[in-house]
Simulated assay, not measured.
Amino acid sequence: MKNRRTMIAYAVFILILLLIAIYLYYSFVTQEQKQEESTAILKAKQTAGLVATERTWKSVWDHTYWIVEGTDAEKRKIMVWIPFQTVQDGPDIPQQGTEGVHSELLQNGVSEEQMRTAIMSANPDLEIVRLLPGFYKGEDVWQLFYTNSTGYYYQFYKFTDGSPVGTPFSLPNTLR
């Protein structure tokens, strides 16, 4: 009986150690990403006057951008695009000054919900894998990653009016 209790205590102790190790590993792996996100939020608050942050996204296509959605002092929803530059052996950092930082009232563009609705009504046979704001060919866009019966694709839509930018990019070797 005593031996069984000892075994249970050891098993619980090992399980707790394993959970702590997993948490520490996860914290270590996501450390740079969290640092970049915090820097982007701070930059958005400084340059666009955000007082509250709702969501953030990291977009990597031609360049790395962090996009921050939040509200200003007048309680208007704003999206802020912040360009980042790559740093070797460390987290990416925002570009110096306000160069490249762009903010737009959400009411002046297409919201995520509106974009999803427009995409699905125009293409009911596709499945949206991911839709996030980004920056493509010098403009603010919605970056759609989707799948249909022929494979996986990327398509960009203008943030301002939801119109497509270019043609879809197909991923190689993705036939279903």
Rank of each mutant, 00 (worst) to 15 (best):
Q95Y: 06
G97I: 09
T174P: 00
V51K: 14
K137A: 12
E127W: 00
M120S: 07
F84H: 02
K43D: 03
N148T: 02
Q33C: 07
V12M: 08
V129F: 03
Q143W: 10
R4I: 14
Q33L: 15
L17Y: 00
T56A: 10
I67R: 03
Y146P: 06
Y157D: 08
Y146V: 11
L106C: 01
E112Q: 12
L105D: 05
P168D: 08
S163D: 11
L131H: 03
A73K: 09
G162W: 06
R130Y: 03
S27C: 05
S163Q: 12
K137S: 10
Y157W: 13
A44W: 06
P124L: 11
G134P: 01
K137H: 11
I82W: 02
P83V: 02
L19F: 08
R55S: 14
N148G: 03
Y26C: 05
Q35P: 02
T53A: 12
I67M: 10
W66T: 02
R5C: 08
V80D: 06
T39C: 01
T98C: 00
G109L: 07
K75A: 11
D92L: 10
Q46Y: 06
I67W: 04
Y157L: 10
V110Y: 07
G70S: 09
L126G: 07
M7N: 04
Y154H: 09
G109Q: 05
D140E: 14
M120I: 12
P91V: 11
M79A: 11
G49T: 07
K34P: 00
L24G: 01
L132S: 09
E99P: 01
F145S: 05
G109I: 01
T71K: 15
G90Q: 08
V51C: 05
G134M: 04
F145N: 04
I78F: 03
Y157V: 12
G109Y: 05
K43M: 08
L175E: 15
F84V: 06
N123C: 03
K34Q: 14
D161M: 13
K77T: 08
I41K: 08
R4S: 10
G97K: 03
N123F: 09
Q155D: 06
Q143D: 11
R116P: 05
V87R: 13
L126Y: 04
P94M: 10
A40Q: 02
G138S: 04
D125T: 13
R176P: 14
Y152W: 01
D89S: 15
K58M: 14
Q33F: 15
Y157G: 02
Y23S: 07
Q85G: 03
D125S: 11
L126C: 04
G90V: 10
Q35K: 13
V101C: 09
Y152C: 00
Y146F: 15
W81G: 01
Q35L: 13
H63G: 04
A40K: 04
D92A: 15
A52T: 15
T71V: 14
E113L: 09
A52W: 02
F84L: 02
V51Y: 05
E54I: 07
A48C: 04
T30C: 05
S170T: 12
D125K: 12
Y25V: 06
